[in-house]
């Protein structure tokens, strides 16, 4: 865990209430998520890393409350204090040859960095990205540029398969030996139940410290209590009780 200062190099609206934030600063940081201090707010905001290169970190967030609203109003050049090196991310080594990435809504961005890591290891990558409607679609072109195949589902049927990610998977039957999912808890639960074979899911929980010492985000698993921030946020499918 490292505490350092970043400055905003980009903070743009990419979908309704949804922003892409690019932070410039410390280059070679690891970790699944960053924890951003916002002036005037007591706790930090944990946000998953979507991309990381050339000393820049990209995160995508939705305005859901006062904190993210304040973040959305910050302009280029604003300095932010950020904790990095947090969380255990997806394991690209778990996939033998063919990976299936299943993302829903704001769960799509963290899978982008994983897609790049899988491609760098020579894996075949299929991404299934689910959204409510056309205007909420994010990062589709970025995924298409990286993945072998990208399937889109929308609940209202405005783009791609009408329905949920599971409908798109049922229609296309993509081959895979390992899956990775990130999205609403109910979506990940259904995905883990529907997909045979091994995989992992990135959970979300309200956090305190973000670094594993306050035990504010503990969940019960088949292996006992686990901290989402430190032991996760990514857990193996077979470990989760839902």
């Amino acid at each position: 865990m490292i505490k350092s200062r970043y400055h905003i190099s980009e903070n743009v609206l990419i979908a309704p209430k949804t922003y892409q934030l690019v932070l410039a600063g410390e280059a070679d940081v690891e970790g699944e998520f960053v924890d951003i201090a916002l002036p005037g707010f007591y706790l930090r905001r944990p946000l998953s890393v979507c991309d990381r290169e050339d000393g820049k970190l990209t995160v995508v967030y939705r305005v859901v409350g006062e904190g993210t609203k304040a973040l959305s109003e910050m302009t280029e050049g604003t300095e932010l204090e950020v904790l990095t090196g947090l969380g255990n991310g997806f394991d690209p080594e778990a996939c033998r040859e063919e990976a299936l990435l299943v993302g829903g809504g704001l769960g799509v961005p963290p899978l982008y960095l994983l897609a790049k890591e899988l491609k760098a290891r020579g894996k075949k990558v299929t991404a299934v990205l689910g959204f409510n409607k056309a205007e909420e679609i994010i990062l589709a072109d970025a995924f298409k540029a990286v993945c072998d195949e990208v399937l889109i589902s929308t609940v209202d049927g405005s783009v791609g398969v009408k329905g949920f990610v599971t409908d798109a998977i049922a229609a296309a039957h993509p081959a895979f030996d390992y899956f990775y999912t990130c999205g609403p808890m109910i979506m990940m639960k259904v995905v883990c139940a529907a997909l045979e074979g091994p995989g992992e899911a990135s959970l979300e929980e309200r956090m305190g410290c973000g670094a594993g010492f306050c035990y504010g985000c503990s969940i019960q698993t088949k292996n006992g209590p686990r901290r989402v921030c430190k032991d996760g946020p990514v857990f193996k499918k077979e470990e989760l009780l839902w």
Partner: peptide, 17 residues
């Protein structure tokens, strides 16, 4: 194990756990 989540609530000038 403790209590169910959410276990944390942010407040002005502090937090509830």
């Amino acid at each position: 194990y403790g209590n169910p989540t959410p276990r944390i609530a942010e407040c002005p000038g502090g937090m509830i756990n």
